[in-house]
Design a protein around this nucleic acid. Structure first.
Lengths: 199, 199
DNA sequence: CTGCCGATTGACTGGTCAGTCAGCCAGTCG
DNA sequence: CGACTGGCTGACTGACCAGTCAATCGGCAG
């Protein structure tokens, strides 16, 4: 029957997992739910993944490494620290806009679930904070940012502030229209940078 | 044997639960672990609580209501908006300093676990954001804060920034000495308020 | 056509717990 | 002293599910 493109079942399972995890949360998702959602047999999940955990790990790492790459890339173009923070904020917000379910899963089940999966990925997560801290440091070296703020602290609350906004969207605490995304992006960066700039 | 003060077993169970939840996380804590830690029989947990969930709910609500009260209290004394935000930040940071394990449990298992317990307590959590938003509004009305920032957005990232700092302490991403707590408190408020003040 | 192999299937199992419950014991009252 | 009460005990059960595995399928090479 020439079902020409042999659909990538592995991908199909990952995509289904995002939807189910986003809907029910990781813990109350049965492997059977993933298989059903993917329209695939139960056992096939274990053909492609060692365990239910590995499915989530894969989802997280796939996306997180993209973010790390995006932050690192800002080092090369001669952007100012503030522009670079802008890029970082934009990347995160756009990630959400582009695939809210995936970001919900990553934030709710990994990034903010430091006791379970967060533990496993602490190194990767920390990596992001460090990259952001380096941007702040650069700003301080250039005199664009006040230097009495510990760069790691600053990176923590810069990232924390953005993630909290995503949480707000995820759980409908704040409005999430196109304009809201844009306004939020600009606002966080502006507020925090204003706070970081010398008086 | 006059074991005079009939030790409050209920309290004993709650306190034990905090320790165990903090150590292992809610999901990998068995009710038996709580009972053991409390030095109490398994069944007694069910004598005082309807379910394992209810233990966590109780812990959260006990503490969260204190925080809500603390925020509300700042309305009465004639403090400036900035001083009030200072008080809020201080309350949260001091809560952590005073009982890190309890705050870890609350943040990790409830506040940031929006898919499971966070869901249940969304209203209470939202309550806190609203109270903070009201402080920002007041600041805007007085002209102390720029008014082109949505107060709810501002409250989200104010709270998010602080919570991220706590997470940093909880998971040893940033140093946590006495001075660090004090510096952090001052810094977040200052940074964010600077960002909120008119240029 | 046959044999081979990886993809795919889904029934089944082993282990894990949350929550139940039948009863014990210490104190108290009549 | 005997009956009663309620905090307290912990063995037991029913449900649930992650992960296993033996069997089937489908395409392709010989």
């Amino acid at each position: 029957m020439a079902q020409a493109p042999p659909i990538d079942k592995r991908r199909q399972i990952l995509d289904a997992a995002v939807r189910v995890f986003a809907r029910q949360g990781f813990h109350s998702t049965r492997v059977a739910d993933i298989a059903d959602e993917a329209g695939v047999a139960y056992g096939l999940v274990y053909h492609y993944f060692k365990s239910k955990d590995e499915v989530l790990n894969e989802l997280f790492s796939e996306r997180w490494s993209l973010m790390l790459a995006a932050i690192e890339e800002t080092e090369d173009n001669g952007a100012t620290p503030r522009e670079r923070l802008d890029t970082v904020a934009a990347f995160i917000v756009d990630s959400y806009r582009h695939d809210p379910e995936l970001m919900k899963v990553i934030i709710v089940e990994v990034t903010r679930a430091a006791n379970s999966f967060g533990r496993t990925h602490l190194a990767e997560i920390r990596n992001a904070y460090d990259l952001i801290a380096r941007i702040v440091e650069e700003g301080q070296a250039q005199g664009a940012f006040r230097s009495d703020v510990d760069p790691v602290f600053a990176s923590m609350y810069f990232y924390g502030a953005i993630e909290q906004l995503l949480s707000g969207w995820i759980f409908d605490l704040i409005p999430s229209g196109e304009e809201d995304f844009e306004r939020a992006k600009a606002l966080v960066v502006e507020t925090i940078c204003s706070g970081l700039e010398p008086r």
